Amino acid sequence: MGRMARCCVQSLLKLVNSFLGMVGIAMIIYSLWMFRVWLRTDESNDVPVPWFIYAILGLGASLCVITCSGHIAAETANGCCLYIYMAFVFMIFLLEAAVTADVFLNHNWQEDFPADATGNLDKLEDFVKDNFDICKWIGLSVVAVQGLSMFLAMVLKALGPHSEKYYESDDEYLPDRVPLLKNYAPPHGSEPAYGVKSDSWIVRTNSKTLR
């Protein structure tokens, strides 16, 4: 029963973790698209690569790395790997919470970020305002997935790794049961279980037989 529950938790963690990987891949594709559009503009020769593109690319790559670590942690069920995975997810969650709080609580939140020469940040802001309901549910889904992945990682840590990996083979315990076997031969170099009969005992037995 415990092994079945562990396998189910591992499968669920891999499935939930894959959603974070898809989000990371989407962010990488979006950043590459922005970089391609920026290269086609006349301003690309005078202005360095905007920070906004770097930020989206770095965040997407981080989510992909977290996804890989999550799959490794789910497969091995190792406590150290699970702790590292939960720490990564928690740091991303804190970063998202800080940015969200700054946007919603600070009316001049744009002043906290460097100027974006490409205008992609303004376009993203306009897109979020025009599709606020969709973006809100997408954001809540990402946060829910992160929370669920941390919960599944904690459950898997509590269940522990597969027990058969830490128990030695049953063959090593066979000599404890073999005295019940009729034709058991002791291993080479080991002493017999019941000892060797002495010569004096054999002589007494033969003399009694002759009488």
Rank of each mutant, 00 (worst) to 15 (best):
N17F: 04
S18G: 08
S18Q: 07
F19T: 03
L20A: 04
G21R: 02
G21W: 09
M22G: 06
G24L: 02
I25H: 05
M27V: 02
I29K: 10
I29T: 13
Y30T: 03
S31V: 01
R36N: 10
V37N: 14
V37T: 10
W38L: 02
L39T: 08
R40I: 07
R40Y: 12
R40K: 11
T41C: 08
T41V: 05
D42R: 09
S44G: 07
N45V: 15
D46H: 14
D46R: 15
P48T: 06
P50N: 08
P50S: 03
W51I: 07
W51C: 05
F52P: 00
F52M: 06
I53R: 02
I53G: 01
Y54G: 11
Y54F: 13
A55I: 04
G58F: 10
L59Y: 13
A61I: 02
C64W: 09
T67C: 09
C68A: 14
S69F: 15
S69H: 10
S69V: 15
G70Y: 01
H71N: 08
H71C: 05
I72S: 05
I72K: 10
I72F: 14
I72P: 00
A73F: 06
A74L: 05
A74W: 11
E75W: 14
E75I: 11
T76F: 12
T76P: 01
N78C: 11
N78E: 08
G79V: 15
C80F: 13
C80K: 14
C80L: 14
C80W: 14
L82F: 08
Y83P: 00
Y83T: 12
Y83D: 07
M86F: 06
F88S: 06
V89S: 03
F90I: 14
L94G: 02
L95W: 15
L95E: 10
E96R: 05
E96T: 06
A98N: 09
A98T: 14
T100R: 15
A101P: 04
A101M: 14
A101G: 13
A101V: 09
F104G: 05
F104S: 08
N106T: 07
H107T: 05
N108H: 13
Q110P: 00
Q110T: 06
D112Q: 13
F113H: 11
P114K: 07
A115H: 12
A117G: 01
T118R: 04
G119A: 03
G119T: 03
N120W: 11
N120Y: 12
L121D: 00
D122P: 01
